[in-house]
Amino acid sequence: MVKVKLWGSLRTLADGNEYVEVEASNFKQLLDQLSTKYPALKPQIKRGVSLALDGVIYREAWFTEISDENEIVLMPYMVGG
């Protein structure tokens, strides 16, 4: 199981949890599991999210490997100018 931190306004869509746990070994599995376990998160995940893995921000990269030893944070999809 990996532990994922949600940003504040997502917590109401995930039963009020700041952290949620899902069975996943890469980002794609993580996002799929989040959508299944917490359907209310699905619209935001579909619009796009970034993931921070041990402080490094990834915008896509479905097959990035993760484990229960990583710090994983869900973030809005990054844009720039």
Partner: peptide, 15 residues
Amino acid sequence: AARKGTLSSYGPTFN
């Protein structure tokens, strides 16, 4: 100042 190991205000811990 934020530094390595700081829990950032937006979620992740800085390296």
